[in-house]
Structures are given as structure tokens and as C-alpha cells.
Design a binder for these strands. Structure first.
Length: 241
DNA sequence: ACTGTCAACGCGGTAA
DNA sequence: TTACCGCGTTGACAGT
């Protein structure tokens, strides 16, 4: 397969790096996925869309221009180590002795992948094959792109949640500060004012005076304060064993 | 030189 | 066993 780089400044470098990135046959089996197709394709069940991360490229979505039709951009760089995986299969890095170069997807490829990702965050084998054909990439590359894209989505979501929690924390801290201050103020008032108590039976006891509202109640008036609330005890409502 | 991004890898877990 | 996924990591590369 032909290789090029969409960045103008390095195009000549890329052209000198024509690697056989053919999607078909493949001795280029990568990672842990040089496997036959699954017998039962699984329909995607999840749809995740993060508009902020969607890359929109005007115009060219859906079909690659013919000039780009067999192209993935691979930029030049120093050779990396040739690695062999634990099952003996050869990774992408080993290609006629040439090291794997950093692949950069073209804008068109990225845009189409993003579009497909918006439709569904996972691909069944059929969709993967079709997309790979359409993009002139290997199915494995499409698969990896989707995996990384899901990871990015998750990371973004986590960041958003983290930010939300941070704001919640800040709000609660502020509320706490306010309540503490209120307590302080009430305490200082309490030191100046006479002390009242709410006697259980209505009778005044000890050294405390009965507060006006309790006095009112004891004298037959309607209580100024709400009756004592009963706290919900989750264990009290548990089913009998 | 440093840092962020991202394609790709390696491994463990899981479902069929 | 196979195919796939999530997760952590690596390394190339671009931008500063």
C-alpha cells in the first residue's frame, strides 16, 4: 500500500517511506488480533457521543477522495526496536526489517471514524471490515482506533465528573463555613440571652426556665415548634428474616 | 528540552 | 479456544 503524509512539510519524507501497509493478506498481523472472523457478529449496543471531541471536517466525509484512497499517513522518524510478541507472531514493527513508523490518520479518515463512532461506539466484525475497506486501513487499525476513542471518551467523562465533584465540594465547603459562622453567632447570642429548656412533661426542671413556646403549649396554646421529628432508621425498616 | 497527543502494543478478563 | 474489550503503557511526533 502506498503511504503518504498529509502534512505538506514532510510529504517528501513520507514518500520515501513506502511501506507495505496492505490491509489484506497479512503478514502484518498485529497484536493479539490476527484471528478469523467471529461466527456471530454482535450488534453494537452502546452509543456514546461527546460533541466536544467530535472532529468535523467539512465536505469530505463518507468517501475518500481518490487521491487519498489508498493512503494512510505515516510520518518519518527514527526506527524503533523490532519486537516479537509472546505468541511468536510478528508485530507491525517488523516489516522487511523496517521499523514501524508513526501512523497519522488523515483528516478524512479521522472524520469518517468519528462519524461512525457517533453512530455506535463499538463495531461488529462486518462493520469493521467495511470501514477498514472504506478507509484503506487494516481492520486491526480500525479496531484500535475505536478502542482508543472509547478510552478518550471515558477519560473526558471522568474529567467532567471530577470537575463537577470539585465544584460540589467547593459549594459544600462554603455552606459549611456559613453554618459554622451561624453557629458561632447563635452561641454568642445564647451567652447573652436567658436559658430555656424544653421539659419532657411540660414541667420546668432544674435551673432552666421554660422557653416561651413550651410555656404557651403547656398553657393550652398551640405549639409554636414542630413536634419532634422521627429520624428514618434504615435498619428499623428492614424485612424480617 | 519539555509536554501533549495518539496509534499501537501487551496483558488480563470475559463471553460464547 | 477464540474474539473482543478495557486498561496501562510505549514511542513517534508536533507544538511550545
Amino acid at each position: 500500500m502506498e503511504v503518504y503524509d498529509d502534512r505538506d512539510d514532510v510529504q517528501e519524507t513520507a514518500l520515501s517511506l513506502r511501506l507495505n501497509y496492505d490491509g489484506g493478506s497479512s503478514h502484518l498481523s498485529t497484536g493479539d488480533h490476527p484471528r478469523p472472523q467471529a461466527a456471530t457478529p454482535v450488534e453494537p449496543s452502546l452509543t456514546l457521543v461527546l460533541p466536544s471531541m467530535a472532529c468535523s471536517v467539512s465536505g469530505v466525509v463518507g468517501r475518500m477522495p481518490s487521491s487519498h484512497s489508498v493512503i494512510s499517513s505515516i510520518s518519518g522518524g527514527r526506527p524503533s526496536k523490532v519486537k516479537r510478541e509472546n505468541d511468536g507472531r510478528i508485530s507491525d514493527e517488523e516489516e522487511d526489517g523496517a521499523a514501524r513508523k508513526k501512523l497519522r490518520l488523515t483528516k478524512e479518515q479521522s472524520a469518517l471514524l468519528e462519524d461512525k463512532f457517533k453512530e455506535h461506539a463499538t463495531l461488529n466484525p462486518k462493520q469493521k471490515q467495511a470501514l477498514a475497506r472504506q478507509l484503506n486501513l487494516r481492520p486491526r487499525q480500525v479496531e484500535v482506533w475505536f478502542q482508543n476513542r472509547r478510552a478518550r471518551t471515558k477519560l473526558k467523562k471522568t474529567e467532567v465528573e471530577c470537575e463537577f465533584l470539585r465544584k460540589c465540594c467547593e459549594t459544600l465547603r462554603e455552606e459549611n463555613r456559613r453554618l459554622l459562622q451561624e453557629i458561632q453567632e447563635l452561641k454568642s447570642l445564647d451567652l447573652q440571652a436567658p436559658r430555656y429548656m424544653h421539659p419532657p412533661g411540660g414541667a420546668a426542671a432544674g435551673t432552666f426556665q421554660t422557653c416561651p413556646s413550651c410555656k404557651n403549649r403547656d398553657e393550652g396554646g398551640s405549639p409554636a415548634v414542630a413536634p419532634k421529628t422521627r429520624f428514618f432508621n434504615p435498619f428499623a425498616h428492614s424485612a424480617a428474616y
